[in-house]
Design a protein around this nucleic acid. Structure first.
Length: 683
DNA sequence: CCCCAATGTCATGAC
DNA sequence: CAGTCATGACATTGG
């Protein structure tokens, strides 16, 4: 019975899976222990069941054996022996594989299993998978891979884990192959995971701060864990015999799921009798292999590489985890993964920065397959991106990355940028930047500096984006298959990619690179992406809408780097100004609309007044006409003293102030008017 | 490729 | 004096 030691010991739980597999006459009883870091993974459990979960398998949740202790999977669970439908294994692998870690934010997980049933000599096939090694850094992955696979000197060992395989390319595998210090690596990985866990857990920034405050206390705890990791029992359990020997001996053997597949696919003579995965899982394989039937691709290798990409994803570069250059070059999974593409990365000088960037460089190189990967679960991008971008670097380094002269993140950034640290990257890409590049994203800054730090040993992103991976005829099949199965590291790229496009070439490439943004990022504003990249524990909406007192209080309460504070203030300023601009435009539009309404109303009033004026004029004319008629009618009836009619041309009617009507000769009226006019002029 | 409207961002002044 | 608002000017984006 092989027990693998998890490299963390705090929290989490042990998910014990007992799986019965019956494939083409091979009956396997597998006990799987999933060590889950985060709180009870309800989602994971549900997803596990939803993802074709083993309905007929026996599942049991077991608590952690003891804090800091090893999760033991040495309990065999009686299980039903009904044959399982074909394809279950693949579903199991999928269920245990990639999708769960990012979605549930499980920082690290370990699958280890104990073979219970042994049909046809095929003993327990599940063991310490390289997938579990992710959190422990590359070393952990190598460690586990070397435990499970390389000892037997079987070629499938090389295929079981890219890391192991890459190592064995340089160091022939075999029983004498060096076995890594699993305990030490477990210890190291434990620290790495713990620290990254602290850094990544942005869902509880306060908790993170508290952890930082009590770092000394944790260090002591880590020392204790290290002691546990160096447990002699664990050392005694290190595999010293080959898998075949273990299988033959029928002893408790730890195999990986990869090994299981490798035995299926690459060792037909080994009790599976030529049952290939293609035969066993035709549909699933077709789904997975991207119709690349002409490619000589080993499915087990794909699975193993896929699993090891888990390492790649979880093995975000951590500043606390700096291996020696020799160890890195020999064990770095990323280097191996890309060994087919180029050897340039193997020539990376062992500087500290390069120690951080194998993953980044890998992503950059693998941008060529973004098209293929775009439909993958892009949420993984977010998770990995955050982990690698923020937690993989020292805060000060991240700050330097963001302090780029051409940052558009605001004045404050420009005022504090480190010109010396970015000169190289700027000089190396000034040609690529458009003349109109007055503002570049923070993400682009990070990308710039990442690129500059790496030394530009990968191709220009634009070229990479346009490069057709199908033209790599030399390693066509494997290369393409790599994209399909273990290019998950590309998920690190989206934000950087997006920023790359905006900074490298303004007009044309932004849309192209936006294709690589996942749905979430695509819907985010730039500030939201920036905040996300810097792990700012507040939403942009909060930052903007928060009252100034609360805002300042928030800034003081949380431990934030200068870069974060600067970005938060810029976000707040931009957000406020954005709202102000929106309001301003709305006001302006309202004013314009009101003015237009006023114009319409005034025009209507004018028309009404014109009509009234015409009506009044008409009425006046009518009255004048009536008055004229009345006048003549009156004169026609008037008689003088002699009884003669009064001539209207010589006399006029004049109303006095007392209401009496007088007949006045026109001469008097005209002379009187002249006198009055003359008096008026005098006055 | 150009045009245009909508929107974002910055600078600046006012409060 | 810092923070906010208002607004003109320019840049960016997307149809």
């Amino acid at each position: 019975m092989k027990h693998l030691k998890p490299w963390w010991s705090d929290g989490g739980g042990l998910l014990h899976l007992t799986v019965l597999l019956s494939l083409a006459g091979l009956r396997l009883d597998l006990d799987l222990d999933l060590y889950l870091l985060l709180p009870p993974p309800t989602l994971l459990w549900d997803e596990l069941l939803l993802a074709g979960g083993p309905t007929s398998s026996t599942y049991a949740l077991s608590p952690f054996a003891a804090p800091g202790g090893w999760g033991r999977a040495d309990q065999l669970h009686p299980k039903s022996r009904e044959p399982e439908p074909e394809g279950r294994l693949l579903r199991e692998v999928r269920a245990l594989g990639v999708p769960f870690i990012p979605r549930t934010r499980v920082d690290a997980w370990l699958v280890h299993s104990v073979a219970a049933g042994d049909a046809d000599g095929a003993h327990g096939l599940l063991g310490a998978t390289a997938s579990a090694a992710s959190a422990g850094g590359a070393g952990a992955g190598v460690e586990d891979g070397s435990q499970a696979a390389p000892g037997d000197g079987d070629p499938r060992a090389a295929a079981s884990s890219p890391v192991a395989a890459g190592e064995e390319e340089r160091a022939p595998a075999g029983p004498t192959a060096p076995v890594l210090d699993a305990g030490g690596r477990a210890n190291q990985g434990n620290e790495v995971l713990r620290e990254r866990h602290e850094a990544v857990d942005h869902s509880s920034q306060n908790e993170e701060n508290e952890q930082r405050v009590s770092s000394a206390q944790e260090r002591s705890q880590k020392n204790e864990e290290s002691k546990i990791a160096n447990n002699p029992d664990w050392e005694a359990e290190k595999p010293t015999e080959s898998s075949n020997e273990r299988a033959l001996n029928g002893t408790d053997t730890a195999f990986s799921l990869e090994d299981l597949f490798q035995m299926f696919s690459s060792q037909p003579e080994n009790s599976l009798e030529g049952i290939s995965l293609e035969d066993t899982f035709p549909g699933n394989l077709n789904d997975c292999m991207n119709s690349s039937t002409h490619h000589n691709v080993n499915f087990s290798q794909a699975i193993s590489q896929d699993v090891n990409l888990h390492e790649a994803m979880l093995l975000c570069p951590d500043n606390t985890f700096r291996r020696e250059p020799v160890a890195r070059t020999s064990q770095e999974p990323f280097l191996y993964l890309n060994s087919q593409n180029t050897n340039s990365e193997q020539n990376i000088p062992g500087t500290n920065l390069t120690g951080f960037f194998p993953l980044v460089g890998n992503q950059m190189r693998n941008l060529t397959s973004q098209d293929l990967l775009y439909d993958l679960d892009l949420n993984i991008f977010d998770e990995i991106n955050l982990m690698s971008l923020a937690t993989g670097f020292d805060p000060m380094e991240v700050a330097q990355l963001f302090e780029e002269p051409d940052s558009d993140s605001g004045l404050s950034l420009n005022s504090s940028h480190n010109s010396t640290s970015v000169t190289k990257s700027n000089s190396s890409h000034s040609v690529c930047e458009g003349a109109t590049g007055s503002s570049s994203d923070l993400e682009s800054l990070s990308h710039h500096d990442l690129e500059g730090a790496v030394g530009g040993y990968y191709a220009e992103p634009s070229k990479l984006c346009h490069m057709d991976h199908r033209s790599n005829s030399g390693f066509h099949g494997d290369f393409t298959f790599q994209h399909v199965f273990h290019n998950h590291t590309y998920h690190l790229q989206p934000s950087a990619l997006e920023s790359t496009s905006t900074s490298f070439s303004r007009p044309g490439k932004s849309q192209k690179s936006r294709r690589y943004l996942n749905d979430t990022d695509r819907n985010l504003s730039r500030d939201e992406r920036r905040a996300k990249a810097l792990h700012i524990p507040f939403s942009v909406d909060e930052i903007v809408r928060m009252p100034v007192d609360s805002f300042n209080n928030m800034l003081s309460r949380h431990y934030l780097t200068d870069l974060q504070v600067s970005l938060i203030r810029d976000i707040r300023r931009r957000g406020k100004n954005k709202v102000a601009a929106q309001n301003c435009r709305k006001r302006k539009l309202d004013i314009i609309l009101n003015l237009e309404d006023d114009v319409c109303n005034l025009q209507a009033k004018r028309e009404i007044l014109k009509r009234e004026r015409a009506r009044y004029n008409k009425a006046i004319n009518t009255m004048k006409q009536k008055l004229h008629e009345l006048y003549h009618d009156i004169f026609s009836r008037l008689r003088d003293d002699e009884g003669r009619p009064v001539n209207p041309n010589q006399y006029v009617l004049q109303c006095s102030q007392d209401g009496s009507v007088l007949i006045v000769p026109k001469e008097l009226v005209t002379s009187g008017h002249k006198k009055e006019n003359h008096k008026g002029k005098r006055k």
